[in-house]
Amino acid sequence: MNIFDKLAELGFSWPTLVAQIVNFIVLLVMLYFFAYKPVMKMLDQRAQKIKDSLDETQKIKDQAAVAEQDFKKRLEVASKEGQEVIARAMRSGEEARQRAQQEAKVEAQAVVEKARQEIQHERDEAIGELRQEFADLTIVAAEKVITKSLNKNDHQKLIEQVLAESTTLNKKA
């Protein structure tokens, strides 16, 4: 009884063995083409895709950072420009105000001056008229006084008084 006879007692048989080997090889070949190859391809592809998209994400992130930096810079420039514009406007406003003030002052002074001159003029005129009138009055008064008899003393007194008055008037003028 050789070993194969003994194994046959356990169920060993060449045809079944060959059949199972063929079975397995069929399974191996089929699975190789319908499972392992496509699935491995898919897994590799997916790994590649994930790697790609991660790279892409990194790139986009970098770009965003650059864009943000750029935006910030621009914002800064714009705000500086804006401040400059405001400062310039304020300065020119201030200047305009001062100029207006200056002009107003000059004009006011001119007006005052003119008014004063007019007043002076009016007064001189008034004084001249008054003097004229006063002289006439004096003459009238003198005539009246002359017509009246006066003693020497009274006469003298009157003349002196009139003169005194006239000098004060002159002085005032």
């Binding site: 059949a19 089929m30 496509p38």
Partner: peptide, 22 residues
């Protein structure tokens, strides 16, 4: 042998189902 055919068929069917339209 019949049962191993069933196993083989089942596995191949599974593979085809999955990889027909991966």
């Amino acid at each position: 042998i019949i049962t191993s055919w069933i196993t083989v068929a089942l596995l191949i069917l599974m593979a085809l189902l999955v990889t027909r339209k991966p």
